[in-house]
């Protein structure tokens, strides 16, 4: 997906199933990774790899994600229009209704502004990457971590996901390849490469013991 447009929440074609790792375990690992970090990460996603026998290519799809939010939510300003904000709220209302069965428009979940990074995280749930394509796909194919810091660097990376991340307010994106997928982290703060985080990812997401 190459646009910043709306999220198709109920499109079954966007939600193809795939083999999954234990989701509770994944969530706990993602939470441990960024809640315990000294840096301020906005979200963490585990992109899970699967192999397509037909095309012979590896794919990365949504495994699980943890959205922590920004340190100072009030500081967050959207560059998008009021119409875009209404669209986000509408989608969130529909998703809330689908998940909980409640369609109350006064629900606190939908009353609040949907921030740019929340939207980026939500849209990520609909995305997948072929090995070698996109930031997670490039990291997975090369087995080399990718660490991009700075708005200009994200824009100039030539990667659509990085460009999207920058548009939605991110200043740092990191993709660390593992045997079963890729761990992606994003932040609205500029965070520079450090080996502590890499080591933590490798320990937490080494599913082969």
């Amino acid at each position: 997906p190459g646009t910043t447009g709306s999220l198709p929440p109920t499109s079954s074609s966007m939600f193809q199933s795939q083999p999954i790792l234990n989701q509770e375990t994944l969530q706990q690992r993602l939470l441990t990774l960024i809640d315990g970090a000294r840096e301020s990460w906005t979200y963490a996603i585990f992109w899970q790899s699967s192999f397509d026998n037909t095309s012979g290519a590896a794919h990365l799809g949504w495994g699980d994600g943890y959205y922590r939010g920004e340190e100072n939510r009030q500081r967050q300003q959207t560059t998008f229009s009021a119409a875009e904000q209404e669209n986000r709220k509408k989608v969130l209302r529909e998703l809330t209704s689908l998940i909980s069965g409640s369609s109350s428009s006064s629900d606190a979940v939908v009353d609040d502004e949907v921030t740019d990074t929340e939207w980026f995280f939500l849209v990520s749930m609909t995305q997948s990457f072929t090995s070698g394509v996109g930031l997670p796909g490039q990291a997975f194919m090369s087995s080399i971590p990718i660490w991009v810091t700075g708005s200009d660097t994200l824009t100039g990376s030539g990667c659509e996901r990085a460009r999207q991340g920058q548009v939605f307010g991110l200043q740092t994106m990191v993709c660390v390849p593992m045997a079963n997928g890729v761990v992606e982290l994003g932040s609205t703060e500029p965070i520079y490469q450090n080996s502590d985080l890499m080591n933590k990812v490798r320990i937490l997401f080494n599913f082969n013991g």
């Binding site: 109920t10 079954s12 939600f15 994600g65 969130l92 689908l98 998940i99 606190a108 609040d112 749930m125």
Partner: peptide
């Protein structure tokens, strides 16, 4: 919900719940 595999449903439900918590604590 129909059309959304369980693992995304779980992620989504968790995201919405946390969002509600953040809104109530703001």
């Amino acid at each position: 919900p129909r059309g959304i595999p369980q693992f995304r449903k779980v992620s989504l439900a968790r995201f919405l719940e946390k969002r509600k918590e953040r809104a109530m604590n703001a």
